[in-house]
């Protein structure tokens, strides 16, 4: 692919790279600090298959230090060209190498290869950026844990397979942290959140 071809795909990113990145980060921080609460994320435009919130998360988090794994749906020339230009993040083919992963719903049935950190360095785990069609409409689950005063009811449209995968990769402090993005909204799900499926698990 020649330089002319690549530049042909380029689109504007944040209007104000400094302040828009800050606003997007603060929304993401709040999303992760208060799991299950919807936060607005409207500082970026949609890019090819990426919705505004998903693209804003990429622009706020990614740079040359963050290897990114792309789900096949997002592995397009336009997304590669824009992430390379605006973020400069290496795009890796092996999931094990990724610090961030850009996923869509069909990918959630297998999270086995993503790095969930180590007991000594639980922070060196992969962060999942998951784009959904909507942030509600699924079955109602109750979330507990840090950031939630008592219990929070969240109905993300996720298949049971995701929750099985998540708990399979969880051994606190090891685990996977996720952001769910749809349109101009985000919900955070840190590894510290306990998800209750029925009354027996309330303990």
């Amino acid at each position: 692919m020649t330089v002319e071809h690549v530049s042909h795909w380029l689109q504007p990113a944040f209007n104000d790279p400094v302040l828009d990145a800050q606003v997007s980060f603060r929304a993401a921080l709040k999303a992760l600090a208060e799991p299950g609460l919807v936060q607005g994320m409207d500082r970026a435009l949609a890019l090819d298959g990426l919705q505004p919130a998903t693209y804003a998360l990429c622009l706020a988090f990614l740079d040359a230090d963050t290897p990114l794994w792309l789900a096949p749906r997002f592995d397009t020339a336009a997304i590669r060209a824009n992430l390379a230009f605006h973020c400069g993040c290496p795009i890796v083919a092996e999931r094990e190498m990724a610090l961030f992963a850009l996923l869509d719903e069909p990918e959630l049935s297998d999270l086995s290869a993503f790095d969930n950190g180590s007991e000594r360095y639980p922070d060196q785990s992969c962060t999942l950026l998951i784009q959904l069609e909507a942030l509600d409409g699924g079955s109602l689950l109750r979330w507990r844990g840090p950031g939630i005063r008592d219990v929070r009811a969240v109905n993300l449209p996720l298949a049971a397979a995701f929750w099985q995968q998540r708990s399979a990769r969880s051994a606190f402090p090891r685990g996977l942290d996720a952001f769910f993005a749809a349109g101009q909204q985000v919900i955070g799900l840190p590894r510290s959140t306990r998800v209750l499926f029925n009354l027996e698990e309330a303990a």
Binding site: D123, P190, S192
Partner: peptide, 12 residues
């Protein structure tokens, strides 16, 4: 620092 803060929040 921001990426570090996200991990710090995820592992209180």
């Amino acid at each position: 620092i921001r990426r570090g803060l996200l991990k710090a929040v995820a592992v209180p």
